[in-house]
Simulated scan of single mutants.
Amino acid sequence: MALKLTLKPQERIVVNGCVMRNSSRRHVMVVETHGDIIRGHDLLEEHDAATPVAQVYFLIQTALTNAEIRDKLIPVCQSKLAELCTVFGAERRALVFEAANFVSTRDYYKALRALRPLMKREKEIFAAMPPAGAMLEAAE
């Protein structure tokens, strides 16, 4: 099955580890064979991987974009996903299992897609927490 991508002007895309940028016009691209593909807006920068779910997302993203170290990363990803299973309730835990299954079948993009709702929830939780300094002040 072909993958049809509509690229916005100047949008980045990574195909089999090669970073490409679209020109100044919108283009449609059809990928007819399997490839490791991720759009620029789905990429997480390493410095943004500061939370547990984001760290796992970044590891899986690295496995997707860097085939040379993929075999070393997969056990680490699976271990981190197992740790996440203890954090979330049943509904969200299913997304962790889904991501782990996709990693096992080497479908890294779908694993990332399964983690996106968890990253959103994690961001909401951390946003609701008071700053660390405020907790220390309240304790005094």
Rank of each mutant, 00 (worst) to 15 (best):
Glu32Cys: 14
Glu46Trp: 02
Phe102Ile: 04
Ile60Leu: 01
Lys4Thr: 15
Glu91Trp: 04
Ser79His: 12
Asp107Val: 10
Thr105Glu: 15
Ser23Met: 09
Ala82Phe: 04
Val56Pro: 08
Ile60Gln: 01
Lys8Ala: 08
Arg25Asn: 13
Tyr57Trp: 07
Arg106Phe: 15
Lys4Cys: 11
Leu64Val: 05
Tyr109Asn: 05
Arg39Gln: 10
Val28His: 14
Leu7Ile: 02
Leu59Ala: 08
Met1Pro: 10
Asp36Tyr: 08
Gly40Lys: 06
Ile74Leu: 06
Ala114Gly: 06
Ile37Gln: 03
Ile74Glu: 07
Glu83Phe: 05
Lys72Arg: 14
Cys85Asn: 15
Ala100Arg: 00
Ala99Thr: 00
Leu73Asn: 03
Thr65Asn: 09
Glu137Ser: 11
Pro9Glu: 04
Glu68Arg: 10
Ala82Arg: 14
Phe126Lys: 05
Ala67Glu: 15
Thr62Pro: 07
Gln78Glu: 06
Lys123Met: 08
Asn101Thr: 10
Ala49Phe: 04
Thr105Gln: 15
Leu64Ile: 05
Ala82Leu: 09
His41Lys: 14
Ala128Arg: 09
Asn16Tyr: 00
His47Met: 08
Pro131Ile: 02
Glu137Leu: 12
Glu122Asn: 02
Ala54Asn: 07
Met1Ser: 11
Asp48Phe: 14
Ser24Cys: 12
Asn66Cys: 11
Gln78Phe: 00
Ala90Pro: 11
Met119Arg: 04
Ala54Glu: 10
Leu5Thr: 02
Asn66Leu: 07
Leu44Thr: 00
Thr86Asp: 15
Phe102Glu: 15
Lys80Phe: 02
Ala100Asn: 01
Glu140Pro: 13
Pro9Ser: 05
Pro9Thr: 05
Leu43Ile: 08
Ala127Gln: 04
Ile125Glu: 02
Ile74Gly: 05
Ala90Cys: 12
Ala132Asn: 12
Gln10Met: 13
Gln55Ala: 12
Leu43Met: 12
Leu3Met: 10
Cys77His: 00
Val103Leu: 06
Gly17Phe: 00
Arg25Ala: 09
Lys123Pro: 01
Arg93Trp: 01
Met20Val: 13
Leu115Trp: 01
Thr65Cys: 03
Ile37Tyr: 01
Val28Ala: 13
Thr86Ile: 13
His47Glu: 11
Lys110Thr: 05
Pro52Ser: 06
Cys18Asp: 15
Ser104Arg: 10
His27Phe: 12
Ala134Tyr: 09
Val14Leu: 03
Ala2Trp: 08
Arg25Phe: 02
His47Leu: 07
Thr6Glu: 14
His47Ser: 14
Glu124Lys: 07
Ala54Gln: 07
Asp71Lys: 03
Cys77Asn: 01
Gln55Pro: 11
Ala2Cys: 11
Lys120Asn: 09
Val28Gly: 14
Ile60Asn: 00
Ala54Ile: 07
Ala49Asp: 07
Leu115Lys: 10
Ser104Glu: 15
Gln10Trp: 05
Lys120His: 08
Gly40Met: 01
Ser104Lys: 12
Phe58Trp: 07
Glu83Lys: 12
His47Gly: 09
Ala2Lys: 12
Glu11Asn: 03
Met20Gly: 11
Ala132Leu: 13
Thr51Leu: 04
Arg121Val: 02
Val56Gly: 08
Leu112Ser: 02
Lys8Ile: 01
Val19Ala: 13
Ala49Met: 05
Ile69Phe: 06
Gly40Phe: 01
